[in-house]
Design a protein around this nucleic acid. Structure first.
Length: 279
DNA sequence: GCGACAG
DNA sequence: ATCTTGTCGC
């Protein structure tokens, strides 16, 4: 009886999603260009809502049982927005040593659209995780740090959540800049940063709605001068407090070691292997 | 209409 | 993400 706006909205979105799926099918079959941008975004939006049903935002396993931490990143060939190298590294937080490394040449197909980063990158990250799971299961990390955000996202489902849910492994979103959401802005980060006195200090990112989206963490000491905090949010299967604690534990530099090493090594790989094609 | 907008 | 010069400091 009381058909809320919510229900109408959901029904409309569902219809739009189904409609665009049908459209995608026809175009694909007839070698037409891709789905219209608006329709594609709608499909992706729905996919985020669906996958979110599997999202877990508390600890699936105690922090004390984390023995290995993974990190993923993608680096691009100079002039290109499609040719890149995806990397997955595993670090032993006790020694900060890299115990596993895998780089893979990739060709991205989807464009970068704020809010939909996962649809551009996550399939390649998943391949690397599955490869590790099947070839060196003993080196599977208990948590993976991902560049880009987790629930700090307009649809509460950033690339870190996406990777975590699809790979079935806890993840943490580690961002270098803020994704503006719920009134949070550069100014919010600047204000919160004033309360971060020493390395290891953090402050919660609370939006206008009162939602806790994540936290800013100072990872460099006052002696190093000006600083930009790292932005942390829950990816999957881990609580915010555990995520902050874990990231801080792996911070030898501003960027936590697993992500930093994935970044360094994917770039190094591109340098060594030229920018030529070598699937 | 204009600017903002993870990587 | 990537394009870039210099610069401050260990």
């Amino acid at each position: 009886m009381v058909a809320s706006l919510h229900h109408h909205t959901r029904a409309a979105l569902l219809l739009a999603g189904v409609a665009s799926l049908g459209l995608a099918w026809r175009r694909r079959a007839s070698h037409q260009p891709l789905l219209p941008r608006a329709a594609q975004l709608c499909v992706w939006w729905l996919r985020q809502r669906l996958l979110r049903l599997w999202l877990v935002t508390h600890d699936l396993c105690p922090l004390e049982s984390v023995r290995l931490v993974g990190g993923v990143d993608i680096s691009f060939v100079k002039e290109s927005t499609t040719d890149a190298c995806a990397a997955l590294v595993v670090v032993d937080p006790a020694t900060q040593e890299v115990v596993y490394e895998a780089c893979r040449r990739i060709v991205l197909t989807a464009p970068y659209i704020p809010g939909y980063l996962a649809f551009r990158e996550v399939r390649f990250l998943l391949q690397l995780v599955e490869e590790l799971r099947s070839t060196r299961p003993e080196l599977m990390p208990q948590v993976i740090l991902s560049d880009g955000n987790g629930i700090l996202h307009p649809n509460h489902f950033g690339v870190a959540c996406h990777l975590g849910v699809l790979a079935g492994i806890p993840t943490v979103g580690v961002g270098k800049t803020l994704h503006h959401v719920d009134g949070l802005s550069k100014e919010s980060v600047r204000r919160l940063s004033e309360s971060l006195i020493k390395a290891g200090d953090h402050a919660l990112l609370v939006g206008q709605s009162g939602t806790v989206w994540g936290a800013v963490l100072r990872t460099t000491s006052p002696a190093e001068g000006n600083f930009k905090p790292v932005i942390i949010s829950v990816g999957h299967g881990i609580s915010l407090n555990s995520a902050i604690s874990l990231v801080w534990r792996t911070c030898k530099h501003r960027i936590p070691e697993p992500v930093r090493q994935a970044d360094l090594r994917s770039r190094e790989w591109l340098r060594r292997n030229g920018s030529q094609c070598s699937a």
